[in-house]
Design a binder for these strands. Structure first.
Lengths: 130, 130
DNA sequence: TTGCAATTGAGAATTCATTTTCAATATAGC
DNA sequence: GCTATATTGAAAATGAATTCTCAATTGCAA
């Protein structure tokens, strides 16, 4: 009878916590970072659940993928805003960077520029002070 | 007696061809691209040999690593020149891009910028014409 | 040419991120 | 509270890139 329940997404403690972590941290996270942060709120949470939640949240576009060169994927809340990233060599955290620069001037002759990515690296302010 | 031969690097057909391919293509190559191009010059060449040669050439700094977001590593001849890259969505080839833009203006307050990476993406001139 | 260590090819092994399996558990409609 | 089923945790399985193993081959000094 209750056909309406088929394939219905349920609100679970794990999924709520995973979204909370992204909101509280407000920076891109990779699956292992996310696992650690989620476990500090609910110790039993598993890596499989983290991956499952990420997958769903990317599919619904609540999260977007951040590809950092040479690293596992990071994910961040989809803010629908053009921006770039800063990678900290000390703590390996990734941060959002606002603004942009005129990269189209670099496009080689005859090439069509469709998108671009700028990755700054160095030390974040927390690591500079530590 | 002949201690001098210990650990000596030998000049082999395979290694010469691998270096030639980088010089002729003059763009970053990943191991599979390199294997294909090398095999067209010497059909028996194996993937293990390609990886071994890359490893040596990176150690001697004849090659440098190019990390493209979300992709296997690419390698390019070390020209000791600051530059960036263009990734073609159609043919997946990576090209060197000359010049730079003032990215330091993007650095968040309190952060220390040590290096940066700019990756342009779109279509290369060959794919635009095809 | 000879001898021997460096190098090679082929495939097995490893590594690591991610996905799947499945029995146990928990959510939501009744 | 009861029930159906979506979700979970734990561990096994997968997939892809890279490294290793080892017997056969090759480069090079003598």
């Amino acid at each position: 009878m209750n056909q309406n329940m088929n394939n219905m997404k349920r609100k679970t403690r794990q999924r709520e916590i995973i979204k909370q972590v992204f909101q509280v941290e407000s920076r891109p996270l990779n699956p292992m970072e996310l696992l650690g942060l989620a476990q500090s709120r609910l110790s039993g949470i598993s890596l499989a659940t983290v991956y499952r939640a990420i997958k769903e949240l990317v599919e619904t576009e609540w999260l977007i993928t951040v590809e950092m060169p040479g690293m596992a994927l990071y994910y961040e809340i989809n803010l629908h805003r053009h921006h770039h990233h800063f990678f900290c060599y000390s703590c390996s955290k990734v941060f959002e960077v606002e603004g942009c620069v005129p990269v189209e001037t670099l496009t080689p002759k005859g090439f069509l520029l469709e998108s671009h990515e700028i990755i700054l690296s160095g030390q974040c302010s927390a690591c500079m002070q530590g």
